[in-house]
Design a protein around this nucleic acid. Structure first.
Lengths: 98, 98
DNA sequence: CTGTATCCTGAACGATACTG
DNA sequence: CAGTATCGTTCAGGATACAG
């Protein structure tokens, strides 16, 4: 669990990571559009962090304009189980509070 | 999931919460001893945060010296499912990295 | 014993401008 | 398009002293 916490450290990390639940690949601009609250710098930081932790893969598509595709790695994919657990818990709390 | 994130916001929140996986009740001093990295203030802050989110219950035991017992609420108990998901993911990553 | 009050510091965040 | 560089700011976190 400490390992998981280390990977997910930082304010927006889980939200960035969550974007890969629906789409299994995403470009920088897609993520930027999906997470308007994040400045360029923070998004870059988070992507570098997650890439460095081997949960995301970064692949430059040759050509112009430049294009970068981010995908979940084999290690990153089981993360969705954590996400669903989080979601279920939050949902239960939300229903009780209505 | 956003709800869950809001509840768990803050650097040490998940670790404090995790302490209630083994023990279902704990006193302030027990938590303080189990989490030596946390200063008094941060531990207080986290306990107040979790109490305010209705995932922990705070109960003052009458008498002297004062004694406070924290327990998981009904809402807080399903949190262990999130914890185990986190733990499994971290464990898998750890095993692969050996 | 279980906190709260106060102050201080550093890291993270955010905005802007700029580069490959 | 996809970032990096720089800088200013804010805010969570830590230490200490004190209170109920």
């Amino acid at each position: 669990m400490d390992i998981t916490l280390a990977v997910l450290a930082g304010r927006w990390t889980p939200l960035v990571f969550r974007e890969f639940l629906r789409r299994d690949r995403a470009t920088y601009s897609e993520l930027s559009a999906a997470l308007p609250a994040l400045s360029d710098k923070v998004l870059s930081d988070r992507l570098a962090q997650l890439t460095g932790a081997d949960v995301l893969d970064r692949h430059r598509v040759p050509g112009w304009p430049p294009h970068v595709r981010y995908t979940l790695t084999e290690q990153g994919r089981p993360w969705n189980r954590c996400c669903t657990a989080w979601g279920e818990w939050g949902t239960a709390r939300w229903q009780e509070s209505r």
